[in-house]
Design a protein around this nucleic acid. Structure first.
Lengths: 344, 344
DNA sequence: CTAAACTATTAACGCGTGTTAATAACGCGC
DNA sequence: GCGCGTTATTAACACGCGTTAATAGTTTAG
């Protein structure tokens, strides 16, 4: 048993035809006619040789990598604690396997942001890309916009021209805060999901403020804290909030993952949820419903978002014009046990 | 402004040298000498043209894809609820970026298992692969073993000849159960992480039984239930356990993710943790410490495992013989609040 | 002063496939 | 028997790069 690679030439030889014919048969080339018996000969020859086309050569010749990239700008550490990643990958996978593509995970270091996207595009490793958690201050994205590589944003970037799939962060945040207001809370703190440089973060704060204003309450900057994706940052910001001496009876946390840390800090301070402090999260990560108390939160369909983003990308890859440029996925509040009526 | 791709030929022309020289300079080819001024000319030419080598062509010519694959056998749905995936990807990323490789996520459908691995290997999309959650009954793996593609298993497969990185599942489970025994529990149920076909599952059960036997307690099959990765399966199995009428004062759950569902079922049945039932988990996923009560669990260093597995793979790719064939990563029990002394 | 040994560079081939333009075989009406 | 449209097939080029073997130029050893 020789270890020699089986090429389409071998298949051609065995079938007694040319390599071109083999290619036509295996790719179902349209506009060319091949007799049924020839087709059969080729197919069985390929089968008996266990022929698998060389993806690299195919990519070079066809000028399509047959792969898309999921591009993130976060450090490996933050990637490791991203509660949404599995859902997003799962969602992408579903679409990708139908289109016989592959998924590449790319990680762009902040320092190389200005060049990395372009190189990614130029290197032709991927046919298109899906960008996660874009930052407002990402210089590389501006340049990427000029280049002609199919790109879909998960999230939104003010003033950018990318195709995107996102939730209405303002509205969603407003829904969450609205719920707290309806329960009678008026002193409501806010802890964000991420630093303000990530687009979703200020949007959710705006939603928070809008809800307050609509209820005739003046937002208070002292009640707003910026976390950094992980539970630990939530823990820290909650400490800061508690030590600031500001009064509040509820917290809107713009990320369930961060809320985990918030809960820990509250518990440590002897505050019970929801008896002393009501908590509303954001994201509805899989564990939110199993937390104790189960977390009231704004449900975000991450898997569905990924699926949609991927579908838009598929359209772009096939040269079709996607129907909508900026797609909004619906969110809704899930009321569980971490929030309750304010005692008066 | 034409959108023509910049090739190494363009760089060569601008620098006034041959394409070969360009290749030598850019790849730091050893065994060939190039004068400093020529080198400089090439570098600045490449720079000014914004030259980015075509990865596809490089791969074809060099016969290395410069990418490795993370291969999973689970459905997109299960991928979406995998709490470890981010940690594993994060760990892999860390090693990969140092070696200028890329990460491909591959998903092998169960129905195609027998052929998929081989095609993956033959298609040369990737230079090597890391296999996740191998199944005992996976026919494709047997065939893969014959082929000469660098492969590292995360997990263990009895009787296989793969390089692997794993925890000592038996010992780790024993540690967890031991803890419950020391607290005075004698009636301890067990809910696994996965169906028995996944290698880790029966191993953890064995560890559970061993601990009991060592304490002079006869394991009772009625107290063992097999979950299926997600919280929901934990919920279902716990229901089944409760309805079976068997008495128990503690549960060893071989997966924190599953344990989330177990907690929900217990709470629904009016049982408090740890007052009525002590709970010990397995994995120490990032949210375990933020659960309420914080979960006592066996800590498994997923990120580190991924890192190690990737390092072994790097060795294999470079033709080095890795030091150890089957690497074991240490685990340790983390005692939190979900377990406590049995009232007598 | 010639042979040998190095230095600097390149022409040319190979990687395995997709695809165009050309060829060969074949039936058809006249 | 002759042109002509199909049908079936292939030779040949393109894709962009890595790499070997060979060619000039230049220094060193004998």
């Amino acid at each position: 048993m020789t270890k020699k690679r089986v090429t389409s030439q071998d298949v051609a030889n065995l079938a007694g035809v040319s390599r071109t014919t083999v290619s036509f048969v295996l790719n179902d080339a349209k506009g060319f006619s091949i007799s049924p018996e020839t087709r059969q000969k080729v197919v069985s020859a390929a089968e008996s040789l266990n022929y698998v086309p060389d993806a690299t050569a195919q990519a070079l010749a066809s000028r399509r990598a047959k792969a898309i990239g999921l591009v993130m700008t976060r450090s490996p550490h933050h990637i490791a604690t991203d509660a949404f990643l599995p859902q997003i990958i799962g969602g992408l996978m579903e679409v990708i396997k139908d289109n016989k593509l592959r998924l590449l995970i790319e990680y762009v270091e902040v320092e190389h942001q200005d060049r990395a996207y372009l190189e990614l595009a130029r290197a032709k490793h991927i046919d298109g890309m899906i960008l996660l958690t874009p930052r407002l201050d990402d210089a590389g994205l501006k340049k990427l916009e000029q280049v002609d590589i199919p790109t879909v944003l998960m999230g939104h970037l003010e003033g950018s021209n990318f195709y995107s799939v996102d939730v209405d962060n303002k509205l969603a945040a407003q829904q969450g805060v609205q719920h707290l207001l309806e329960l009678g809370h008026t002193q409501i703190a806010c802890i964000t999901n991420a630093p303000p440089s990530y687009a979703a973060s200020p949007d959710r704060v705006t939603g928070y403020k809008n809800a307050l204003i609509a209820a005739g309450i003046t937002p208070h900057e002292d009640l707003i804290r910026y976390a950094d994706f992980d539970p630990e940052s939530g823990y820290i910001q909650t400490k800061s909030l508690l030590e600031s001496g500001n009064n509040f009876t509820a917290i809107f946390v713009a990320s369930d993952n961060v809320a985990m840390g918030v809960k820990a800090a509250l518990r440590e301070a002897g505050l019970r949820i929801p008896e002393d402090i009501s908590l509303v999260g954001f994201d509805d990560i899989p564990w939110a419903q199993y937390a104790d108390p189960p977390l009231t939160t704004v449900h975000l369909q991450a898997e569905e978002m990924a699926r949609r983003a991927c579908l838009v990308l598929m359209d772009l890859l096939q040269g079709k014009e996607p129907k909508v440029k900026q797609q909004i996925i619906e969110t809704h509040l899930v009321v569980r046990k971490s929030s309750r009526k304010l005692w008066l």
